[in-house]
Amino acid sequence: MELVLPSADGLTNYRLVGEPVAQGTYAPTRSRVAYAAAHVVADPLGDNSPGAPAVVDWEHTLEFRRHLWSLGLSVAEAMDTAQRGMGLDWKATQELIRRSAAEAPDGRIAVGVGTDQLASGKHSLDVVAEAYEEQLAVAEDVGAQPILMASRALCGVASGPDDYRTVYDRLLAQSARPVILHWLGDMFDPALAGYWGSASVDSAADTVVELIKANLGKVDGIKVSLLDATKEVALRNRLPEGVRLYTGDDFNYPELIRGDENHHSDALLGIFAAIAPAAAAALKALDDGDLATYEKVFAPTVPLARQIFSAPTYYYKTGIAFLAWLNGHQPGFTMVGGLQTGRSLPHLADTFRLADQAGVLTNPELAVDRFRRLLNVSGIDA
């Protein structure tokens, strides 16, 4: 099959070359814990313009989660991939958590707990902690593992590491089950620069390690999204035994999940939603001790991941929804908050090409037909 792909230099013919990764149903992985951070599907009939309350297509949103569970992946729900702070408001988030948790297989859902119900502006530490507590109660009410998300409000008011400790110690003391901490770098959200009270990653890591050691038994692990494998491994090596490092590094995940002679990272990744069949096949190979297949399956997905998560990184959600549309998991390429406009047509064309080469266009004929339609409505006769 061929189609026209736009680029910065004009239009070129592209012939598909990829062999789609085999589809199938998988048991949950044995050797790693693997969460896919899932996106939400916008209702095409809803007013999902920027700033409007989110109107979600619940049928397709939940069907996508069933797809991930069928592949043996767990779901990280209501995370930044679901456009927390970028289109998904707290009312819709609560409904998303409740609907998803009601369908999740036992132990295979964790949900984001944050402070995004607060209005923009500066708040006291008490108000920030109370916002966290409100969301923590929702997670505990549905029986899901909490992920204490990095908070813009906390970052905006905290004067140093002690303020972070004050809030997190308070939350961990009352959590009914071990939580996953969340360290999201400022490439994902510029408002989180200096999180944990320092612009130095090394100093911030000191704060994290001290927090975890002071709350052993309350912390299952920490999700780290710094796009720096060296920094992640350094932190991983400092964690107390039994505390997991969940990689959120969408650039270097194959090597981090594979691990070294000392430790490995588990996974909590947005890219897994985009490459779910490949992720499932690679993790099964890892379970089986077949590192050659693990590397073979994952290797071509890395250029695609680097494309989707290229700067400005916070628009990666557009690429996730784009691939879900190409693969037939949603009827249209629309997003809450109008975020489908977050990437240019040439960027999406490169995403299409790399997805083909990675074998994650599960129905190439459908993908080609849909991309041609996108080109047509964009003014390109293809």
Rank of each mutant, 00 (worst) to 15 (best):
W183Q: 01
V142S: 00
A153P: 05
G194S: 12
Q135Y: 07
A137D: 15
A173E: 13
Y195S: 14
T166L: 12
S151M: 15
A139Y: 11
A173P: 01
G185W: 04
L184P: 04
E130P: 02
M187E: 07
L136Q: 14
Y195T: 14
L148H: 03
A129K: 05
D169S: 14
A129W: 01
L172M: 08
V138M: 09
R165C: 12
L154F: 14
A150W: 09
Y132F: 14
F188P: 00
A139C: 10
I147Q: 07
M149D: 00
L192K: 03
Q174N: 14
L148M: 05
G194V: 06
E140D: 10
R170E: 14
E134H: 11
D162M: 09
G156R: 05
S151Q: 15
D169M: 08
A158C: 13
A144P: 04
A173S: 10
A193T: 10
C155D: 12
A193P: 03
E134N: 13
V179M: 09
Y168R: 01
A176R: 12
H182K: 03
W196A: 07
A158H: 08
Y195M: 13
D163I: 07
V128L: 14
G143A: 07
P178W: 14
V167Y: 06
A176V: 09
L148D: 01
Q174E: 15
E140M: 10
L154A: 15
W183R: 06
I180K: 02
W196G: 01
W196T: 05
Y195I: 15
E134D: 13
G194Q: 10
V142Y: 03
D126I: 04
L154H: 14
V157Q: 10
M149W: 04
S175D: 11
G185L: 07
V138D: 04
G143L: 09
I180S: 05
A193F: 10
D162A: 13
L171P: 03
P178N: 03
R152N: 10
V157L: 11
A129Q: 04
I180P: 03
P161D: 05
D163E: 10
I147L: 13
L181S: 01
F188H: 02
G143V: 06
D162R: 08
G194M: 12
Q145G: 07
G197C: 01
L181W: 03
H182D: 05
D126G: 02
D126C: 02
R152P: 02
A139N: 02
G156D: 04
P190T: 07
L184I: 12
E133I: 08
A158E: 14
G194D: 12
S175M: 12
V179H: 01
D141P: 00
L171I: 05
D189R: 02
G197N: 02
L125Q: 12
P146R: 08
A144L: 10
Y195C: 11
Y164G: 05
W196F: 15
Y132D: 08
L136V: 13
A176D: 09
R170A: 12
E134A: 15
V179Y: 11
L148P: 00
Y168A: 00
A176N: 11
L184A: 05
M187V: 11
A191Q: 09
A193L: 06
A150R: 10
P178T: 05
L172G: 01
D141I: 06
D186C: 11
D163A: 08
A176K: 14
P178D: 06
